[in-house]
């Protein structure tokens, strides 16, 4: 599985948050935000991660970046197990990873001007002269489509899209190899989505970065990502090649997500599948398949046995006992 092309991979990664017990001697309970997730991200690709709100996408991203300690399992970045490294080695390894935050309003210190915001990572790393830093900040500003007049303005003076550009400039200032984009446009006005996404794609070409692209919107992911992974309640439901998944979704959950996306192509007739109920709180996740409580096709087996991710054709993994059940033929 691991070859020279792999930039990052996880092995049975689990992140469980302990929940305060109701009774002093009650059973210890956990929110299983990420449960047994194994993904592989190849160098230079854009890897998509989709799922409903609260399914553990951000938690997974934080764990990949070493911001959150995994309960179990490994994160292997460039062949090194991140959590086995010493503090110093870890900092060294993490220099190559950066993140673009979901919310551009809270991820920039409101008291800092653009120059300080963008130069902060360089300042922290050290080894830049004042002139170098200034030149670099200007270069980054132009790269993300802002100009030098903005240099001494504060985040509150910018629109959401512009702030996200500042966040992007910050993130790429240290030339990372791996960039996590945690729903980079979900907090922005629809009109600027395309601009920001295009910017990200241009930068990827130019700087040769690998993206983990998190989104709850399948339509966005479809155009950007080569590979895709669909999460539900902390577990991977379906993973593989984006085109394959879009044309042949085998997991009922993926199909429900797809049917929620308005299809531009009117010829393409797809059945509507609307889910009932809300996403359950992952404290008392169902024993069998995570999706069984909302799955319209659930049978007795789904409530008993957790389905494993099993290959269904080339580069296509599905965690369902009855892959493709209920599909119109």
């Amino acid at each position: 599985m691991s070859d020279n092309n792999t930039l990052l991979r996880t092995e049975n990664l689990c992140v469980w948050f302990p929940v305060r017990r109701a009774l002093p001697f009650g059973q210890k309970r956990y929110v299983k935000a990420v449960d047994n997730v194994s993904i592989t991200i190849k160098k230079g690709e854009t890897f998509g991660l989709v799922g409903e709100s609260g399914c553990g996408k951000s938690t997974l991203a934080n764990t990949l970046l070493g911001m959150q300690k995994p309960t179990d399992g490994k994160v292997i970045f460039k062949g090194q197990d991140l959590n086995a490294l010493s503090n110093k080695e870890f900092k060294e390894a993490r220099r190559d990873m950066q993140m673009i935050f979901q919310d551009p309003f809270s991820s920039l210190d409101p008291r800092w001007d653009v120059y300080r915001l963008i130069s902060e990572p360089m300042y922290i790393r050290g080894g830049y002269t004042k002139e170098q830093m200034e030149a670099e900040v200007l270069r980054l500003l132009h790269l993300v489509g802002l100009n030098e007049d903005d240099l001494h303005r504060y985040p509150s003076e910018f629109s959401g899209g512009q702030r996200q550009r500042i966040g992007i400039a910050r993130a790429i200032s240290l030339h990372p190899d791996f960039l996590v984009c945690d729903e980079p446009v979900s907090a922005l006005d629809v009109s600027v989505h395309a601009q920001i996404l295009n910017l990200l794609m241009e930068l990827q070409q130019e700087l040769n970065m690998t993206y983990l692209f998190i989104s709850h919107n399948l339509a966005v992911v479809k155009d950007l990502c080569k590979n895709l992974c669909v999460m539900y309640l902390g577990q991977v439901m379906e993973a593989g090649d984006t085109q394959t998944i879009f044309h042949n979704p085998l997991h009922p959950y993926t199909r429900s997500l797809l049917s929620a996306v308005l299809s531009v192509n009117l010829d393409e007739k797809r059945e509507r599948m609307v889910l009932n109920g809300d996403i359950p709180i992952p404290i008392d996740a169902p024993r069998g398949c995570r999706f069984c409580t909302r799955c319209p096709f659930a049978s007795a087996r789904c409530f008993q046995e957790t389905p494993q991710l099993t290959p269904q054709g080339e580069n296509h993994l599905v965690a369902c006992h009855f892959p493709g059940i209920g599909m119109e033929k």
Binding site: K91, R94, R95, M99, S106, L108, D109, I124
Partner: peptide
Amino acid sequence: NSNYVKAAELAGASRWHIMFRH
């Protein structure tokens, strides 16, 4: 717990940096 402190941590900031600059 704010995102900008998280962003600084991600950029490799030390505890002192976070405490005195943010």
